[in-house]
Amino acid sequence: MEQTDVLKQNTSSIQGALARYCREGAAIDLPGITPGRLEHYRRLVLNVVHGILSEAYPIAARCLGSSKWGELVEQFFANHKCHNPQVWLMARELLDFIEETAYHEAKGLPFLPDLLLMEWTEIEVHSMPDNTTPPSTPCPDSQLLSTHLVFNPHYKLLHLSYPVHRIHLDDFEPKPGNFFLLVFREEKSGKVQFVSLSPYFATLLDTVLQSEGIDVLGAKNALVEAGIHAPKSIHEPQLVYFLKSLQDKQFIFGKVA
């Protein structure tokens, strides 16, 4: 803890002890307190943390059940130093805590990081700062493969190891694999959409999105050069159908006007 010149060590230590009590809950003895009142501070602090995290991760909270979820929240808050001054961004730090401590492995919840990531990504995409795109017009199907497309800039592409987007709370024993999820924000409504992608479409889309000024055929050829070939079932009609569906969903805005 940084000390200023004027704040005495004793005062600083007392403040630190109160803060640690609120985070960790171990009994403390501070001078000049009213008996029975300190507990309210810990209760109020934890109310805020429980409220924010339960709102951010409603599926994870239900999936774990109140006991396991409550234990996770309190473990997180006691052992992780939340660094973000914006309380809604504190929810992201739960994911950091899980990954840093491998909490999910110790508790036999291997899918938990993916589930938290998916739920957090919904918040992140919903709230991410607004970006502008060039003016666009709807792109005819015949041009979707060979035109520079304008994409919705508010998105995340997730690679998951568990199918947490198909979660059924009553019967959830997910098997690991490779799952891809496009998460994007509708331009007009601001609502977040999730689109499940096959591995090839996800890789192709990622290549287009990461490469400036490349069209889809160019991205497909770049993948071939990198040794990644389309599955036998995917030909140009399937690619066009895939792109058309993304345009219908307003992830592809169209072609440059």
């Binding site: 803890m1 109160l18 640690r20 109020l44 943390v49 130093k81 939340c82 504190m90």
Partner: peptide
């Protein structure tokens, strides 16, 4: 905030 950890509530 104390010990480089935010508490998101107002301590005396």
């Amino acid at each position: 905030k104390c010990d480089n950890a935010h508490l998101y509530d107002l301590l005396p």
